[in-house]
Each structure stands twice: as structure tokens, then as C-alpha cells.
């Protein structure tokens, strides 16, 4: 269906379309992050594309790749009933310096999606009107959906009670056993979030 869209993109932007992929009606283009907004504006405004609806914008972390992060955008045309997935790869091998243009000017709905992607992955959206954390609290350090964020690391806002203060054990009481929680969790794993655990 929208393979025609991919052809159109390749024709219009040439080498800035780094890869394309089509599988069972699912069409993806990986594009140059430097031309992200230009490509989005084209997809929205070109009468043959007419992608008026921003379905989703999110991030993804591939720790083995450089650039490490992906910004993934899903678009849909209500009038023409075709959809497209657009990706851009940003950030170095430590997920630092990930920057891309904001598309809030094109689709208002991108506002909170971009804040979420910033919060979870640390991607900075240039030109976003209000780029703050949206899910985590301002005191939170780091970006929790990065694969390098320790799986069991918490950042409490209030100091936890100590066992001396409480006078009772604060570790899990029966019948809440060691098997509660995730295999890499606070009981079985270490603070680095290493994959080794009691069950392995």
C-alpha cells in the first residue's frame, strides 16, 4: 500500500533516506535525523502523502549500535488510509548527545510524546515548547528505559524508614517470599542490574 510512499520519499530525499523496509503492509523508512522535520513536513503537506495524524512517537534503545537510540514516529493518513513508520537514529554509544528537531509545530499531539521520549531515553527535541520530564519527577537522575539503567535502581523522594526506626524487619514478610518480584530484582540481583541471578 504505502510502498508508494517509500518510493516517493526516496525520490524526493534521495540519500537522506538511509534504509527502507516493507513487510506485510508495514512500511518503515530510516531517515537522516538532520532532515527529520523537513521530511515530516513533506509527509504532512504533500497532497499525495497527506499524513495528518500522528499516531505515536517513541524511542528505542539498541545498546550494541552506534548511533544507539532510535526515535520512532508512526503516521497515518485519514484521507488516504495509509500509514508509515519513520525512524531516525541519534546519540553516541553512551546515548549522549541525542538531539533531533521537534515536530510539535507540525502535530500538536507530539508534545507529550516527545516529553516522554526525553524522560525515558534522554533524547532532546530542538524547538520543543516545554521539554520537561512527564512521567518521572524532576529530581530523578538518568533515563530509566535506557538498557544501561540498572533494573533495580530506585531513587526515592523521601528517605525510607530504617529497621532501627521501625523496630520490625522491613524486608518482605511471609507469605511474601524471595520468589516475589522479577528475577533480576532487589532480592536476587545486584545493584548493577547484572543479568545473573539466583535462578540462572
Amino acid at each position: 500500500m504505502s510502498e508508494r510512499l517509500l518510493a516517493k520519499l526516496r525520490e524526493r530525499f534521495g540519500a537522506s533516506v538511509l534504509e527502507t523496509h516493507s513487510h506485510l503492509g508495514d512500511d518503515t523508512a530510516v531517515v537522516d535525523p538532520a532532515r527529520w522535520k523537513e521530511i515530516c513536513a513533506f509527509l504532512r503537506d504533500d497532497p499525495a502523502c497527506d499524513m495528518q495524524m500522528l499516531v505515536d512517537l517513541c524511542g528505542a534503545d539498541y545498546p550494541d549500535r552506534t548511533p544507539r537510540l532510535e526515535v520512532v514516529l508512526h503516521l497515518y493518513s485519514i484521507a488516504r488510509r495509509h500509514r508509515l513508520r519513520l525512524k531516525a537514529r541519534v546519540g553516541d554509544e553512551d546515548a549522549e548527545g541525542a538531539e533531533i528537531d521537534s515536530v510539535v509545530d507540525l502535530w500538536q499531539g507530539a508534545n507529550w510524546f516527545e516529553r516522554e521520549t526525553y524522560d525515558m531515553f534522554g533524547v532532546k527535541f530542538r524547538g520543543h515548547p516545554d521539554l520537561r520530564r512527564i512521567l518521572m519527577y524532576p529530581e530523578f537522575e538518568g533515563h530509566p528505559l535506557l538498557k544501561t539503567y540498572p533494573a533495580n535502581k530506585t531513587q526515592p523522594l523521601v528517605a525510607y524508614r530504617t529497621e532501627e526506626e521501625a523496630g520490625v524487619p522491613l524486608e518482605k514478610l511471609a507469605p511474601f517470599g524471595d520468589d516475589e518480584g522479577m528475577s533480576f530484582g532487589r532480592k536476587n540481583g545486584d545493584a548493577t542490574g547484572d543479568a545473573t541471578n539466583g535462578e540462572a
Binding site: 530509566p144 530506585t154 524508614r161 521501625a166 518482605k172 518480584g181 522479577m182
Partner: peptide, 24 residues
């Protein structure tokens, strides 16, 4: 419930692992 008692399966950065960490 299990979540209030221990955090339940929300064993990650989001959740307090049991309210006894905060209040008696």
C-alpha cells in the same frame, strides 16, 4: 494487596517496595 505490602511485581524504578518503607 501485594503492591501496597511489598511493591508486588513492580520491582523497578517506579515503585515503592512496600509502604512499610514509608509509614508504620
Amino acid at each position: 494487596g501485594t503492591c501496597a505490602s511489598t511493591g508486588g511485581f513492580y520491582d523497578n524504578y517506579t515503585t515503592v517496595a512496600g509502604i512499610d518503607k514509608l509509614v508504620p
